[in-house]
């Protein structure tokens, strides 16, 4: 009897041991939460810039097709970007007025993307290429090493800030600031949350400001 009980005791212990995982439950869910990620070129002095421009709609990125959105929600995002830039001393101009900086804004509609670096969408037809800004035969690049990002889920908002002042001799246009907000446009967030996320992107980038004006 004692032997049976001992074996039962040991078996229960082993089952319990096997059920214990290192990672706590719920940790996977954190990976799906809204995330505001930014990266700025820390070598750049933003006081050299005075003006900026911004696209008039949001490009969507898809495995099969691409296009542009202009909904009230999208307009709110664009307006919020403009508001934050103006609060930091920049002056908005049209893209025909030779802006120092240019915002392109995109959203991942649906994608199977699992392992990419920032900038993978530059080859998609709906994306705003340099010629949208009047720079034919030019290309974007990151002057800093972009952080490895393992996935872009649907609804991820992507914002690139191009620097048209420091274009290289080999026709490379640097991205001075990069932002993505994961899961922002999935239809589950209110307009206030969307605007707050845009504000957060700027708040966590204190060097993105100018005293040139």
């Amino acid at each position: 009897m004692k032997t049976k009980l001992s074996l039962l005791f040991i078996a229960a212990g082993l089952i319990f041991l096997a059920s214990c995982s290192k990672y706590p439950p719920g940790v996977d869910r954190v990976q799906e939460d809204l995330v505001v990620y930014t990266q700025i070129d820390i070598q750049k002095d933003f006081n050299q810039f005075q003006t900026f421009s911004i696209v008039d709609s949001i490009a969507y990125i898809d495995n099969r097709d691409s296009g542009h959105y202009l909904t009230p929600e999208v307009q709110a995002i664009l307006d919020r970007i403009v508001m934050n830039m103006e609060n930091r001393g920049f002056i908005k101009v049209s893209k025909d007025q030779n802006p120092n900086l240019g915002f392109t804004v995109s959203v991942v509609k649906t994608t199977n993307t699992t392992v990419w670096y920032p900038g993978w969408w530059w080859g998609y037809p709906g994306y705003y290429p340099p010629y949208y800004w009047g720079w034919d035969d030019y290309w974007w690049y990151y002057p800093y090493y972009p952080t490895y990002i393992t996935s872009y889920s649907s609804g991820t908002l992507i914002i690139d800030l191009a620097d048209f002042v420091n274009i290289t001799e080999d026709k490379q246009i640097p991205i001075a600031w990069f932002c993505y907000v994961r899961a922002l446009l999935t239809g589950t967030h209110s307009l206030e949350q969307i605007e707050a996320s845009i504000d957060q992107a700027f708040n966590q980038s204190p060097d993105l400001k100018t005293n040139a004006n």
Partner: peptide, 9 residues
Amino acid sequence: NGIAVTATN
């Protein structure tokens, strides 16, 4: 390298 991330953790 100028990275900032705001998220739950």
